[in-house]
Amino acid sequence: MKKLYEYICKGETFLIKVFLVFIVGLVFVAAVTRYIGYPINWSVDMAVCLFAWCTFLGGDVAMRNNKLMNVEFLIKKLPEKYRNSIELINFFIILIFLLAFIGYGIKLSYTTRFRQFQGIPGFSYTWVTISVPIAGTLMVITTINKIRERLAKRGGECRLQ
């Protein structure tokens, strides 16, 4: 189980890296081809589609590595015990939010199936919306791990080296 999750994490970061390189390439190619008079109009749409994936999957990676920005000055002053419980409350609220995020994300992905990318005929907008429930699911796993970590004070995550 743990092994499988590690593979998923690795796959996730690999995917975002590839997407990022594609975004740079697509935007670069869009400008160059337009400059020489043969514009490729779908490349920018493709880039913003990948941008959504980078944002939400990247959010999960940042969360897993404790790189999400937060305000600490108040809870830093609290004793360890209270601090731990407040963090637990936070993660439970986040968990509920993420579950709604997944549920309504699936609903929206279903309704956007007719909506096309203006610039890419035949390419459904669902390819963008589906990034939310998928990344949401990964974030739920991350959150549950954080909750377990706080409950049992033990590890069980895969981090970037």
Partner: peptide, 19 residues
């Protein structure tokens, strides 16, 4: 505008459409 009908209309009229 980026929709196919716009793009093809402008292309048909001779120009190179840019979204």
């Amino acid at each position: 505008p980026p929709a196919p009908i716009w793009q093809e209309s402008v292309r048909a009229l001779g120009a190179t459409p840019v979204a």
